[in-house]
Design a protein around this nucleic acid. Structure first.
Lengths: 165, 165
DNA sequence: GCCATATACTTGAAGTTTCAAGTGTCAGGA
DNA sequence: TCCTGACACTTGAAACTTCAAGTATATGGC
């Protein structure tokens, strides 16, 4: 009968509102902190660093663009721009995908690997001191569980079709 | 004796690494989701919406720029640009602070209030369906606790001195 | 083979954020 | 009073992200 955004919105309870505020503060402060740390120590923002990490873990240090974007949870467009920048730095290179002429692989160069290895200790230290050195093992488990639930809600079933917009 | 970034970095354990991955995925997907939802339904990104919310809750719907920036956990510079944009939309106005000629108040206009009220239900619904409708009450408490701990680590003691860079 | 549609990726412009540098005001002491 | 340094905020340029549109290849009928 009705197709509207809900007759009466269910507002957040006090507990929920509080948790939401805490969440927003913590996540923005952390992202900010990591961005600054990496920009200072490695010359790139956090997301770009994440891309290098993904590539470093991939089979031959290379990955299809779309797969990389999916793993990093960013749009293809954003990845295109990011790789363009990383390529300019000489940390990543593109190569044509042999099996699909539409496709491109992004691959981590030796220099990119060096940059990554150089930046990693500082980055881990930052993540540690912000989170894992402060939480109990139970809390780490709780955090993982909570985030998994959230991800499920945001990334429907098959998670392939309306992929990110 | 040594002043280096740590002789041997303590890497993350498997559990920690897993939790970290979950965290990154969940937070980027959520921020993305909310940005799109609000951009579509209210014509502004999530952070800007947060600013309007803060103002709507302030005494006379107005607040000093610095205080607003602190509450929202963003830099003053970012706030300046954001308010400039919101002002152009007619949702916020600036006024000189009577007691301090250096200061400015940002204040929510009636139109800004209307936009906010119109957007709020959809936003709450989005937050709900992504988080609070999926977590148990215990998990909500755990999340708040975890985020509080993180925030403490990122926002030192007095939290006023080296305030955000 | 040919067509329609889907997929893989790129591009340019507009919007947002960061960074460094700038203006003007305040507060305390010489 | 006149400094000096701190504070409140702004500004412009560069970097990054988003959005919509574009190119090229693949795939599944017909």
């Amino acid at each position: 009968m009705s197709n509207e955004p809900a007759a009466e919105p269910r507002w957040l309870s006090d507990e929920e509102q509080f948790a939401w505020q805490c969440y927003l503060h913590a996540t923005t402060l952390l992202e900010d902190h990591l961005d600054r740390q990496l920009q200072r120590d490695a010359g790139m923002p956090h997301v770009y660093y994440g891309l290098l990490v993904q590539l470093s873990r991939a089979p031959r240090r290379r990955m299809r663009m779309t797969e990389l974007a999916q793993n990093a949870k960013i749009t293809r467009s954003r990845l295109s721009h990011a790789v363009a920048r990383l390529e300019k730095n000489g940390w990543v290179r593109r190569e044509n995908c042999p099996s699909d002429k539409r496709g491109q692989n992004a691959l981590l160069t030796d220099e990119g690997m060096r940059v990554l290895e150089k930046a990693a200790p500082g980055h881990v230290a930052a993540v540690r001191s912000a989170i894992f050195d402060r939480l109990s093992p139970e809390q780490v488990g709780q955090l993982a569980e909570i985030c998994q639930v959230m991800t499920e809600g945001l990334q429907p079933k098959g998670a392939d079709l309306p992929w990110l917009r």
